[in-house]
């Protein structure tokens, strides 16, 4: 009871801080200095129509590399923690029903296509590698729901994951030699703003990120699904 009271006091204290922040908050009328720079220079400098993508992939590309690394680490640790070497051969499959099976056959190719579309068009439309990768992983999840005993090739998943990572870093290094710096997208021609083949290396990098994120999420899902039933 006393613990509950302490928790309540803590939540009320944090809540009053939040309330002060909320009532003292006035939305900006103009973009701040950083945002203004991105808004003014993205189209001319990087040729990307989606400014968020330009920030994520190029301006703050190093952070994104770190983020992908964090995701890779968490996927590996999930695999490590859950791996006991034994799959569950004695698991009895739960009948999933006609609707889910047929729906999966119909939907999974479409979901994968949508995922690829989202990350290939990351520099033009809302979306990008992380979103596209998550959509691809949702297709994998649907496959696992329809057939819980389905076994995914871990070597294939990790091959896609590692190759995408290696190429990502290599494109970044190419920027060091051919353009202005690490992960500079201007190693390829910028093209016309708004075209699919524009924004230099951004579509390439974001597609690699999409593959990598999709493979990482898929490996997390596969590790969770293949763990022995309790």
């Amino acid at each position: 009871m006393i613990k509950r009271f302490i928790a309540l006091a803590l939540v009320v204290a944090v809540g009053s801080v939040f309330a002060t922040l909320l009532f003292g908050y006035t939305p900006d009328a103009d973009l701040n200095l950083t945002a203004r720079y991105y808004a003014e220079r993205t189209a001319a400098d990087l040729g990307a129509a989606n400014i968020v993508t330009a920030i994520v992939v190029t301006y703050r590309g190093l952070d994104t590399l770190g983020e992908v690394t964090v995701l890779f680490l968490s996927a590996s640790i999930v695999g490590l923690v859950l791996a006991k070497g034994t799959h569950a051969p004695h698991r009895t499959p739960v009948p999933v029903g006609e609707l889910l099976t047929t729906g999966t056959r119909f939907l999974v190719p479409l979901i994968l296509l949508l995922g690829v579309y989202v990350f290939v068009n990351g520099h033009l439309t809302p979306g990008g590698g992380f979103q596209g990768g998550a959509i691809i992983a949702s297709g994998i999840l649907l496959l696992l729901l329809a057939d819980p005993l389905k076994h995914f090739s871990h070597s294939l998943i990790s091959a896609i994951e590692s190759l995408a990572g290696i190429f990502y870093v290599m494109i970044g290094l190419a920027g060091l030699f051919l353009a202005g710096g690490f992960l500079d997208n201007r190693i390829l021609p910028l093209g016309t703003l708004g075209n699919l083949a524009s924004a230099g290396a951004i579509p390439l990098i974001y597609s690699l990120i999409g593959l990598k994120v999709g493979a990482e999420f898929a490996s997390i899902l596969a590790a969770l699904s293949e763990t022995e039933e309790l």
């Binding site: 900006d28 973009l31 701040n32 950083t34 945002a35 991105y38 808004a39 400014i51 968020v52 920030i55 994520v56 703050r60 952070d63 994104t64 983020e67 964090v70 995701l71 680490l73 968490s74 996927a75 640790i77 999930v78 923690v81 859950l82 990008g128 992380f130 998550a134 994120v213 999420f217 997390i220 590790a223 969770l224």
Partner: peptide
């Protein structure tokens, strides 16, 4: 346009959140 920087930050935060949740569940 609105400020693109918070959106880029949240994009990162969501992905890291998924990774952290998966770790906690494991």
């Amino acid at each position: 346009i609105i400020d693109p920087v918070p959106q880029a930050l949240v994009l990162t935060a969501i992905v890291i959140g998924v990774g952290v949740t998966a770790l906690m569940l494991a």
